[in-house]
Structure formats: C-alpha cells, structure tokens
Amino acid sequence: MLRVLLVDDQPLIRSGFAMMLSVEEDLAVVGEAANGREAVELAAAHRPDVIVMDVQMPVMDGIAATREIVERGLGHVLILTTFDRDDYLFDALQAGASGFLLKNADAEQLVDALRAVGHGHALLAPEVTKRVIAQMSAAPQGAEEGGRHAELLSYLTGRELDVLRLIGAGRSNAEIAGELVIGAATVKTHVSSIFAKLQVRDRVGAVIIAHEASIV
C-alpha cells in the first residue's frame, strides 16, 4: 500500500484527487495540505511514500516545500501543475522532485505516476521530456566526467544499452517493451540494472548520462 499526501491550495482539486484515488486498492490518501508549509509538517507526521505537490501556493510554494521534504528524507515528490513552464520544471528537478506531471494528464497517467514515484522511480510528462534532454545535453562536460561515463557504460550489456538509448529518447517502459519485443517485467529488470550500474537514482540521471555520452 502506497501512502499519498495531496498538496494543493484548491480544496476542490484535493477532494477530486482523493475521490479518484479512493478506488485504487494499492493507494491510500493519508493527508491533505493547502500550502507548502503544511505539506512539510504533514510529511514529517505521516511519512507518506509520495507527495503530490502543486507549485503555486501561499505561505510556501511547492518548489521550496519539495526542497525541504527531499533534504529531510520525508518522501518522494510528484509535482503536478497547471503551468507548463521551464522554470518550474527545472527548479522542481533541482529541488529533488522525482516526477513532473501536468494537470491535463488523465486519471490513468496520474495513478501510474504515483505508483512509479512511490516505488522510487522517476517520471516526466511526455511534454517536458525533450526539454529536459535539450537542457542537460547543452551543459558542458569535462574530460574527467566523460571518462567516468564511458567507464560506467562499459558495465552495461548490449541489451541494457538498447534500453538506455530508448530511455534517453524519452520512451516509457511500455514503449520500450513494444520496440524491443520483450516483456514489461524484463524491461523493469533492465532499467533497475541500468540505474545500479550507472549509479543514478532515477530516469532523469540515466537520460543525462545517455545524452552526455552521445549514445542517443
């Protein structure tokens, strides 16, 4: 059972999300907060597996709350916002958010995102994946870092490199399974192995290495 904390300054949005999640057997809403400060306090009290976090809120915004929650190890954060803005996206990732989703996502996407983030994975809305890739790829890379990436990539099997290329291209696990004609469980196993070998905690870290090493 994944414990979920809902954070949004609009009560109707919180109640709507809570009602939607109430039918999921593996998800339980343990609290609701109307601003970032309340979110930090409730996260400390309930220790949820995943916090669904809005960005624009009074008292403390979602980015500041995310940073404090991640620094204190109080749970994984999924940013859920109406605003498709680069500054929100990159500030959220720098603050330690594990996921970024827009509020125009359908119910199935939100539930899948909660499960992914709650289990320690990363997830980005398809609309923003390419922008993250472009931003990270534009960053300068030193010789020492490039050598380290090459060493880590040498630990991957041929099939893991195939999976990494598709991760770097923004493909979901289901899309990777379809393109490589392998089972979903096999993809998950490869992804977990890739994260371990590359010493990254999530998909964002793998995407960065894939692009910096120019294997995509």
Rank of each mutant, 00 (worst) to 15 (best):
G75E: 02
V50H: 01
I51A: 08
R47Q: 15
A44M: 11
G36K: 03
A65F: 06
M57K: 06
H76Q: 15
H46M: 12
R37D: 02
R47A: 10
D49V: 02
V59M: 11
V70H: 08
R72Q: 12
R67I: 06
A39F: 04
G62C: 05
M57P: 02
L42N: 01
P48L: 08
V59K: 07
I51P: 01
D49L: 00
M57V: 00
M53E: 08
L42S: 03
I69W: 00
D61M: 00
L74M: 12
G36I: 00
V70I: 14
A65W: 05
V52Y: 02
E41D: 14
I63G: 03
V70C: 03
P48K: 04
L74G: 01
R47G: 05
A65Q: 09
R47L: 13
A34Y: 04
I69T: 07
G75Y: 04
G73M: 12
E71G: 08
V40I: 15
I63W: 07
H76L: 04
H76P: 07
P48A: 05
A64C: 04
Q56T: 09
G73F: 11
H76V: 01
L74P: 07
I51W: 02
V55R: 06
V59W: 03
E68K: 14
R37Q: 14
R37G: 00
P58L: 09
V55F: 07
D61S: 06
A45H: 14
E71P: 10
M60C: 06
G75M: 11
G73L: 14
A45K: 15
A34M: 15
H76K: 15
G75R: 02
G36D: 00
G75T: 07
H76F: 09
M53V: 10
H76E: 12
E71Q: 14
P58G: 07
A64L: 12
R67W: 10
E68D: 11
N35P: 03
D49Q: 05
R72W: 01
R67A: 15
R47I: 03
I63M: 10
G73N: 10
D61Q: 09
R72D: 02
A43H: 01
M60L: 14
V70M: 13
H76Y: 13
L74Y: 08
M53C: 10
A39N: 03
I69E: 00
E68V: 07
M53H: 06
G36V: 01
T66D: 06
G62V: 04
V40P: 03
R72V: 00
T66W: 11
A43S: 12
I69S: 08
V40N: 03
A34D: 09
E41F: 06
D49E: 13
I63R: 01
E68C: 11
V70P: 02
H46L: 13
G62P: 01
E71D: 11
A44K: 14
H76R: 10
M53W: 12
Q56K: 12
E68I: 15
A44C: 09
E71F: 10
P58H: 13
R37H: 14
I63H: 06
V59Y: 09
A45Q: 13
L74W: 04
E41Y: 10
G62I: 05
V40E: 01
